[in-house]
């Protein structure tokens, strides 16, 4: 038993929410019923008019979490740098949006905001005094396809080391530790007409222990792969395949003091009670060895690969993922 804590990102229940099967309150009640300690939200997903949420909705949020005994852990935020069609926002505009988000997190009683990958780095230092005043940590997401070697991510980590502040850190998504391409993704794309030889090529790369990101996000694909590309679906599959990175856990070593939170990304809980792509037991063993005592938030992403005509059951998937986390923690 370690001090690692369990959380669920409401990202997991997005389909149930969109279709009106679960409200925000239903999601939090579900977490309480399965004994989860913390919740992560996406304010743009479940709080109307975010970041300008009404006082009434903020009061309602506090009631829901109080009644269910759930700790708010993280809010996933986005700076809408592409708000306009004809230009990107300026540094001042982006900074004003980030400050609004810090105020919202503070009002919601959430101590951490997750900045999506590629959030402009040039607004962080100017927002830091407000983050300190409101006691809200700003942490960049390190996500598959945009992990530590991405130049934009590196810009942020360089600044993070320079500032060396407890209010600037990272949220790491475990999708950077995929040992296999998610088979639910393969099944989805095969249904759309993917050439099976392309899927096989990607699976073989993983089997050899390679990081597919290094192939898929290049302008020119290896000849052997390019020669198998027959359609737009094939190209899309290869592009998305780069979103599942295959790193050793030791890639985290230099960043550990700055890691505030983990997204426990998962695509498919198998019959055996493990995740198909990410080796959670080994991951949690690594975190225990390093003395990590923050949260891991279940973040279910298999729903997007539901085959036409099939229902998404995120509730069951999250329950299984939580059982697994509990066992390994």
């Amino acid at each position: 038993m370690s001090n690692i804590k369990r959380c669920v990102s409401l990202y997991s229940y997005q389909d149930e929410y969109a279709r009106g099967k679960m409200t925000l309150e239903d999601c939090i009640k579900e977490l309480a019923s399965i004994g989860v300690e913390g919740v992560e939200i996406i304010s743009d997903q479940m709080l109307w008019n975010a970041p300008d949420v009404s006082d009434e909705d903020i009061a309602n949020w506090h009631r829901i979490i109080r009644e269910n005994g759930i700790t708010p852990v993280c809010n996933d935020i986005y700076i809408n740098t592409v708000l306009y069609k004809n230009r990107r926002l300026t540094q001042k505009e982006n900074l004003a949006l980030l400050k609004k988000e810090l105020h919202l997190a503070h009002k919601l009683g959430i101590p951490l905001v997750r900045l999506v990958s590629l959030t402009p780095t040039d607004i962080i230092e100017d927002a830091l005094p407000l983050a300190e005043e409101l006691n809200v940590v700003m942490a960049l997401e390190v996500h598959g396809g945009m992990a530590f070697d991405n130049p934009e991510t590196k810009k942020f980590t360089d600044l993070m080391f320079k500032l060396n502040s407890p209010y600037v850190g990272l949220v790491v998504d475990t999708g950077i530790f995929c040992r296999k391409h998610p088979r639910v993704s393969t099944a989805f794309f095969l249904n759309q007409g993917l050439n099976p030889a392309v899927a096989e090529y990607i699976d073989n790369e993983f089997a050899k222990g390679k990081d597919v990101e290094a192939i898929s996000h290049q302008r020119v694909l290896p000849d052997e792969l390019e020669s198998q590309i027959r359609s737009w679906v094939d190209r899309e599959y290869v592009l998305f395949a780069g979103g599942y990175e295959n790193h050793d856990f030791s890639v985290l070593d230099p960043y550990l003091p700055f890691i505030k939170h983990f997204h426990g990304k998962f695509f498919e809980m198998t019959e055996e009670g493990v995740e198909y792509s990410v080796p959670y037991k080994e991951f949690i063993d690594y975190l225990k060895e390093k003395g990590y005592n923050g949260y891991i938030a279940s973040e279910y992403e298999g729903g997007r690969f539901a085959l036409p005509g099939t229902e998404i059951d995120a509730v069951t998937q999250v329950r299984k993922h939580q059982e697994m986390l509990k066992k390994y923690i």
Binding site: Y11, A18, I42, A50, Y78, N80, L83, K85
Partner: peptide
């Protein structure tokens, strides 16, 4: 129609 994304956005971002 529902938005084909997982969060709400200002209408100007509907391209």
């Amino acid at each position: 129609t529902r938005i084909t994304y997982y969060r709400g956005i200002p209408l100007s971002m509907v391209h």
